[in-house]
Amino acid sequence: MEERIFGTECEYALFHQLPPPSAQGSGKTAKWSGTSFSENLQEMSHLLVCALRGQNRPLAGEFLANGGRFYIDRGSHPEYATPECRSVADVIAHEKAGDRLVQKLVEEAGGLMAEKDIPGRLHAFKNNHDPRGNTYGSHENYLVSPRAMEKIQQIIPFLITRQIFAGAGKIPHLAPPAFSGEDWLPFAVSQRADFVEHVLSDRASDARGIINTRKREITRSGDNVRLHVILGDSNMSEYALKLKIGTTALVLRMIEDGLGDIPAFLQPVQALKVISRRPAGVHAVEGAGSGHTALEVQSIYLEKALGYFSSHAATGEEKAVLCLWETTLSGLKNLRISPSGVIEDDPGELSRKLDWVIKAWLLNRAREKKNLDWSDPHIKHLDFRYHDLDPETGLFERCASLGLVDRVIEEEAILLAMEAPPHNTRARLRGGIIGEAWGKDVEVLVENWESIRIIAKSKVDGMHPFARQRRSVNGLKANLNDPFEGCNEALLKRVRRFLDKCDEV
């Protein structure tokens, strides 16, 4: 499949930071106790929804005029789903737009907190676990052909090992005694690896799989289906995000065309967890006596990709991702990290590019200056601050503003994505209809990704042409079955005609 639809879904953690009790009035302390990721969350997430509704931004329920969706998920986590995108660049722009939108809502919720006399400050963290061991996801969606789904096991070794460039890094809660010795890192490369228990699973909040098999009809584009990948970490780095989405799409394209033999891990879930703590370790694979490291497995996929694209046409974006992949694996080959977690040699400058390496570099800098151990709560606190979306208090955001991390898209693309949908998917129709209907005497209902309904608040004249066709005098339903369809002037004309009619009433 040379044309593909992509999208991501990011859950964020809300963190209510209170001033010390001595700085609070006596009446407030009783209700708002303890700085927390898990207390007061329902109220805090409700404030975000209030802030969104107060923005006068075109909305239809949870859907926005940029085609994306913002809502509060299980556990009171705010979640942003990007609109359907047709390029990796669009996915990056729209995921980062989601980050900006959430941060904007947090800032506006701060104003509502002041009005309600709620002390403290609200923060949104884009990561995958809180200090109490709860996890929340960063999910990826790829439109794939039935042929790829039949052979989906071929992507598993790739997904297990891509954490060496896509991991966000974390200081683990507890270091199991067995996790020590040569090659073991004092930190984990992946945030989500500890929470995955199966290769395939239809569960999302427990017994998680690398791939989620729960069927949700979000596409009826031919026979193509959605591949829902849930083992990934949330990326702050645009570079790591581009690699994660771009390389996964390359591997899917090869699987659809016939990838050939790929060595499968004998114990895939264990390999996923151990690679996170010991990325240079060797793991048993079928048919290879000596086993493979994560880097070797990635190199096998890269070699296949280089061979594949020597005989298949590649888009400009695919060529760029291929080049990035090759450069990054070379950088990882030459990256030297001491057993105490100090980066000794980084000729590929991965500490500007990959989240887990950037974070290791930052935490080491703080450890050395303050003579702190990896388990010190100050260091754990900085680990979380890396993911804070607030430009005033977020560690990654500060690195970005100082020019200490590499970017792969222009800021203008992110600002545009906050307002406008991608131009070449059905998100354009959804966003266009939401925008056109905003401020009119109608209610717009987007019950799913495939359709949108406009209901007139006042009864519309039953004699206009549309009403006769649909035998409905106060509603219009637009089906968005084809995710590739970004241009449907006939549909938009019908919508405008209906809205004009509503305005006449």
């Binding site: 303890g34 700085t35 927390s36 109490r132 930052l362 388990s375 709560p377 560690l395 690195c399 100082l402």
Partner: peptide, 28 residues
């Protein structure tokens, strides 16, 4: 220049550390 950037980063980290921990100790 790089030196100035790193100095600004160190100042920022210092500020974050000073501003702060029970939440991060409980796990132990």
């Amino acid at each position: 220049d790089k030196k100035k950037q790193l100095q600004q980063l160190d100042n920022f980290i210092e500020g974050v550390l000073q501003e702060a921990l029970e939440e991060f100790k409980q796990v132990e």
